[in-house]
């Protein structure tokens, strides 16, 4: 990479188109200077400019090289497919060993996490996110595809194992739905952007109770619509193989379909919830006590039957909600199942 400072900016941008965003995000105007070499370009700044713009030429040269290296690595490889994540037992807060053998979580699985507040749910997720190697307070280790994982899962900003969705999350940007998803797609450098954006908005609309248009400002979406867009966007655009969900509110969004979308995108879904309808949708659930994994329960057939009863109750409840919203008088709703 030593040679980049003697190459023309136009050639560099031709070869590494992503450098255009590096220049603009670093406040470096290159218009009209494309035919200069990088070294000439930086030499062209006078002392005032260097001081005003807080430019550190050596550091910038180094960072450009670093950026090119990262982007080549990022663009050159197929996305790593994470088929399994394995948690090896550690110990709880009192030092007692955890009572489970290797816990293997597979692509397309929904695992629920239950346990009182402060029991250690966040630490478990922390262990996964940091791909613990016996070096966290729980002593757990995490394997990816049965292997001791690559360090990049810890340190690379583009490769994060876990994406998160929680009830407390809001959109804060002042953008339309379309522009927002486009911005995300841009940062992920996806091909055929327009198609991907349309797909996300369609999916989100199929999850949301009430549809929204691509022109709707994201900050004026309802709770259910926001959650639907967050889920569709995360399912399709986030590179993280694991999605952590902290409850999904039971209004304005089809929760079963939302989980179905994540699974169909080959995500691993971890869900912290005490809502029985959600918890029983999982394949297994992890019970956390005193900082340790206390039990791993496979959802039983009886529980699945109970789930369908609970879902019926849920539907009735929602039907009353809809009636109220429409200004109807509440009368008995017959169970349509």
């Amino acid at each position: 990479m030593a040679a980049i400072n003697n190459r023309k900016i136009s050639d560099l941008i031709f070869e590494f188109p992503f450098l255009a965003s590096f220049f603009s995000d670093n406040g470096l105007d290159i218009t009209g200077k494309e035919e200069l070499t990088l070294a000439e370009y930086f030499a062209g700044f006078d002392e005032d400019e260097i001081e005003d713009k807080a430019i550190d030429v050596d550091n910038l040269m180094f960072q450009i090289g670093e950026f090119i290296k990262q982007m080549i690595a990022f663009l050159g490889k197929e996305d790593d497919v994470v088929k399994t994540v394995t948690i090896l037992p550690g110990h709880d807060k009192s030092g007692n060993p955890e009572k489970f053998d290797d816990l293997v979580i597979r692509q397309g699985e929904i695992i629920c996490i239950v346990g009182p507040t402060g029991s250690g749910k966040s630490r478990l997720l922390g262990d996964i996110e940091w791909v613990a190697q016996g070096d966290t307070p729980t002593g757990r280790s995490v394997l990816v595809n049965d292997q001791v994982p690559d360090k990049k899962w810890r340190f690379s900003s583009a490769d994060k194992l876990v994406a998160q969705l929680s009830q407390n999350m809001n959109f804060v940007m002042d953008l339309s739905v379309y522009d927002f998803v486009e911005l995300h797609a841009e940062s992920r450098m996806v091909q055929n952007r327009e198609q991907v954006i349309k797909r996300i908005i369609n999916k989100a609309n199929s999850l949301a109770g009430e549809p929204f248009t691509p022109e709707t400002p994201i900050t004026s979406l309802s709770g259910g619509q926001s959650r639907a867009l967050m889920i569709a966007d995360t399912a399709i655009l986030s590179k993280s193989p694991i999605i952590l969900i902290d409850e999904i509110e039971n209004a304005g969004i089809d929760r079963k379909r939302a989980l179905g979308l994540l699974i169909s995108e080959d995500k691993i879904v971890l869900m912290a919830t005490h809502d029985p309808v959600l918890a029983l949708m999982g394949d297994r659930r992890i019970v956390i006590k005193n900082g340790g994994i206390h039990k791993v329960i496979e959802t039983t057939d009886e529980e699945r039957k109970i789930l369908s009863t609970l879902e019926d109750m849920d539907r009735i409840f929602l039907a009353y909600r809809t009636k109220l919203r429409q200004g109807d008088i509440i009368t008995k709703i017959e169970n349509t199942q």
Binding site: F22, D25, H184, T234
Partner: peptide, 16 residues
Amino acid sequence: IVSQAEREVFASRVNT
């Protein structure tokens, strides 16, 4: 308190 997408975009801008 922000969406996953905003987190990812923000982190990628920091990285740039």
